[in-house]
Amino acid sequence: MPIHQIDPTTSQAATELIGRLESANAKVLNARASQQFIDGLLKMGLAFAVFLVDVADGTSQLSAEQIQGGLASIERHCDQIESDLPIAA
């Protein structure tokens, strides 16, 4: 029971981020890096995923401001992984 309506643009943004986060997670999973590094980043990914699924489905009970802030954090997370992920040669 959402306590407020989530506008379609926001749900759409969340849906797009689901695809991006999934790719980022896959990149982490396949990275030749230490186990702690991989596990830590995936645990962050899990919290982001729960958030995104709720927002995409319009079931999130967070405020509009919290949702925008969360989406921005997840975008930064994906940016970092897409451009800077250290992978041992």
């Binding site: 590094f37 830590g40 980043l41 919290a47 982001f48 969360g70 954090s73 930064r76 997370h77 970092q80």
Partner: peptide, 18 residues
């Protein structure tokens, strides 16, 4: 470690806001 700390700081920001 340097990458992880950056990612964690971003994650903590998310935690605090959410």
């Amino acid at each position: 470690l340097s990458f992880f700390q950056k990612a964690a700081d971003n994650f903590f920001k998310f935690a605090k806001e959410t």
